[in-house]
Amino acid sequence: MSVAEDIVDGRSCGTCSLCCILPEIDVFDKPANSVCRHCQPGRGCLAYDERPATCRDFFCHWMTDADMNEAWEPARCHMMVYTQGPQITVLVDPAHPHIWKTEPYASQLQQWAAESAPSGGYLIVYVGDEVTVVGAKAG
């Protein structure tokens, strides 16, 4: 999560609505992988001016991380990346369940997992009900 001041120059949500579809949004009793009742996919939020802080304060990493190249634009890669404490979360559009296992994504996810591990971080990929911890070694 981030704040509006952290948005990379030139980036915008455009027609992407993945943050209104992929995550669970408790304040709206919205389950994961369903369209929020306030969302018009490809057009935006019908309650934009009155949206709760949960929505107002959220920006995916592509919006706030200048190191993420155009391949990571959520509408293009069908994934949304964000951080919660030590956890890097990757939500994958269930209509594209294997995209995260392809390049350039797979190697970048492995790199992020490896970089976060020394400080106790980890990377989790959610595809529908499937959960994968990236970089985890069998014990």
Rank of each mutant, 00 (worst) to 15 (best):
S2R: 03
S2F: 05
S2W: 03
S2D: 10
V3L: 07
A4I: 08
A4R: 02
D6Q: 15
G10I: 09
R11H: 06
S12D: 11
G14F: 08
G14V: 03
T15F: 09
C16H: 00
C16K: 00
C16T: 00
C16M: 02
S17T: 07
C19Y: 01
C19W: 00
L22Q: 01
P23Y: 02
P23I: 03
P23C: 06
V27A: 15
D29Q: 13
D29A: 11
K30L: 12
K30F: 10
A32W: 06
A32K: 07
S34N: 00
S34K: 14
C36G: 08
R37F: 07
H38E: 14
H38P: 04
C39M: 07
C39D: 02
Q40N: 12
G42H: 09
R43F: 13
R43D: 10
R43P: 01
G44K: 11
G44T: 07
L46F: 02
L46T: 15
Y48F: 13
Y48L: 04
D49G: 09
R51S: 11
R51P: 06
A53R: 12
T54G: 03
R56T: 02
F58N: 12
F59L: 12
H61Y: 08
M63S: 06
M63V: 06
T64Y: 05
N69Y: 04
A71G: 10
E73I: 07
C77W: 00
M79I: 05
T83S: 15
G85D: 07
P86I: 05
I88G: 00
T89Q: 04
T89K: 02
T89R: 03
L91V: 13
D93M: 08
D93Y: 10
P94H: 03
A95G: 14
P97R: 09
I99H: 06
W100R: 04
K101W: 04
T102E: 15
T102D: 14
P104E: 01
P104W: 01
Y105A: 10
A106D: 01
S107D: 09
S107I: 05
L109W: 10
Q110T: 05
Q111R: 12
Q111L: 14
W112N: 00
A113T: 02
A113Q: 03
E115G: 03
E115T: 13
P118K: 08
S119R: 05
G120M: 10
G120S: 14
Y122N: 13
L123D: 09
V125D: 00
V127Y: 06
V131Q: 13
V131R: 14
V131D: 09
T132F: 04
V133P: 04
V134I: 09
K137F: 07
K137Y: 07
G139L: 15
